[in-house]
Write a protein that binds this DNA or RNA. Structure first.
Ligand SMILES: [Mn+2]
Ligand SMILES: [Mn+2]
Ligand SMILES: [Zn+2]
Ligand SMILES: [Zn+2]
Lengths: 149, 149
DNA sequence: TTAATTATTAGTAAGCGTTATCGATAAAAT
DNA sequence: ATTTTATCGATAACGCTTACTAATAATTAA
């Protein structure tokens, strides 16, 4: 028999999951912490990390290790990729998957048994392109702020 | 006139560049540090980071921020992607670029002005697949070691 | 040539995000 | 009821990277 460790649905774990599900974008651990703290003022950041980790291991959520920036978490457990706005920081789902013919070609040329793919795209979102054209072109926005568009 | 800061080619910078170019794989800053120290025993790790940073800014090398693991550096300044072996840690170049038709579709569906793409693939390299089939299947290798295949 | 300015250095401290440790607590199993 | 186990909050430690500092060497200005 498989010896899977039993997981309790503690109030902390439940609320972390609820808050993550309510946030439509892809929050970081500390962003989730800030939200959860409004309901559980005595929770610790370590507890948030620990639960996000176990929820991800269990497959309830996804952990997104980003290239060069802070880890984020995702309620969407389907395989999908992400696109990020360089101006406002928005991180959106990419609905379209990579063409399987391309992956096949990769297997042929490199001989790898592919287990996973991480695809991250950066650019300027439609809203920011608009803003740029309309008013001033100066880079006066904080790129680290989460996009509210 | 563009006010580009003048860069001196110091012995440190020169040797860092030389050593990075000699390492065929994609070393981390501390791996480069270890190599450079054999020739400049008094160099500091900060100097290595600082120079790798400025060399990348200047376009002489590429900085590779990996998803979930340590930053690496690349002598290959051409746009290309990477594939990593989950068993031996090898990090190889992927010669084949993403099909442009796919990128076009992405622009159409999301309306982004795409500036860059980070693609990272994990799997098992041909050598490791062989090894696995031949002898024992136990995971007895250090995944963090750099592949010597 | 001499003096002032600037880039760079080695050494080290600080920063940041994440993980590990620990004694306490509460749920589950026996 | 007793033991075992998962989890908690608090906090220290960790790994990688960046920032600070006084000293030094290269460049520019006088
Ligand atoms: Mn997503
Ligand atoms: Mn490469
Ligand atoms: Zn935007
Ligand atoms: Zn391998």
């Amino acid at each position: 028999m498989v010896h899977r460790k039993f997981q309790r649905m503690t109030p902390q774990r439940k609320i972390i999951l609820e808050e993550l599900r309510q946030l439509r974008f892809h929050p970081t651990a500390d962003e989730i912490y800030d939200r959860v703290r409004l309901r559980l003022p005595r929770i610790s950041l370590g507890t948030v990390y620990r639960n996000l980790e176990s929820l991800a291991a269990q497959g309830a959520i996804r952990k997104l290790d980003m290239a060069g920036s802070q880890r984020r978490f995702d309620v969407n457990t389907e395989l999908h990729h992400h696109i990020r706005c360089l101006r406002c920081g928005a991180l959106e789902d990419v609905s379209v998957g990579l063409p399987s013919s391309w992956e096949d070609m990769l297997v042929d040329t490199h001989g790898y048994d592919i287990q996973g793919v991480h695809l991250e795209i950066w650019g300027f979102c439609p809203k920011c392109l608009e803003d740029r054209d309309r008013v001033n072109c100066q880079e006066n926005t904080d790129h680290n702020e989460t996009c509210t568009h």
